[in-house]
Amino acid sequence: MKFTGTESYVATDDLKVAVNAAITLQRPLLIKGEPGTGKTVLAQEVASALGRDLIQWHIKSTTKAQQGLYEYDAVSRLRDSQLGDDRVHDISNYIVKGKLWEAFSAAPAPILLIDEIDKADIEFPNDLLQELDRMEFYVYETRETVKAAERPIVMITSNNEKELPDAFLRRCFFHYIKFPDPDTMRQIVEVHYPGIQHDLVREALTIFYDIREVPGLKKKPSTSELLDWLKLLMSESLTPEMLRERDPKKLIPPMHGALLKNEQDVHLFERLAFLARRQERQPPQ
């Protein structure tokens, strides 16, 4: 069982090695990287490439580790007891399975995506240490141990909002998705919009990487923004020539709304355009 990238996802060599290491040794894989570099998509692609189910667990600031295992629905049981319902005698009626339990009991072993683990409380990863390591946990209410028949492939993404504890990191493989270089980016674009005009892509990529180089940008545009922008350019049927014209007055690229998501960044560009115009009017002596 090896992951070699898919038709709709360009995986670099280092990413493939990391994913395959995680699959072979059945350890969790922790993925970090700039927003919009395809961390979450990776799990979906691995799942479809290996033909496994994908179980997604999106973490919020209020998510508790216990919710991933199971929850004891005490309130319904309380209500049932007051109404004299018969179900009340069996406590297992009120145990609600969490995503981890779901992943442990599914066969064949699915891919479990724990998305944005850094959103949760600082203690969250620590609470899952044993569960992810041994792939088993104990249900106190029913006194049973849930154990994964087949260890699921666990992928964890993080946006670096919080540091993860060392003990947790020791148990994972780690991969940092770096921002794709122009060659890889061209492949990514090709994969998403097959048959797109090469000239258009070339011009668009030049502008895109130029924008990323501009010092002082609050939010650098990322892959997903580039893809959106290209889609816009195509639907407006802009020609490569229109992108190429380096008229200083049009320093702000067309449809910049897809690339610059911050009014300060747009201002910065307008200022740069203004400076460029002024320089043109007074050629250097």
């Binding site: 060599d13 280092d14 090695v17 072979t24 040794l25 970090k32 990191l169 780690f174 940092y176």
Partner: peptide, 28 residues
């Protein structure tokens, strides 16, 4: 070592570099 034994890195220096990076480094 376990991963090397399992043949994840397939005897190429680049692969070994990627594998050891994924295993030993946990913070960019």
């Amino acid at each position: 070592l376990e991963a090397m034994k399992a043949g994840v890195a397939s005897y190429s220096v680049d692969d070994f570099y990627y594998l050891s990076r994924a295993t030993l480094v946990k913070d960019e």
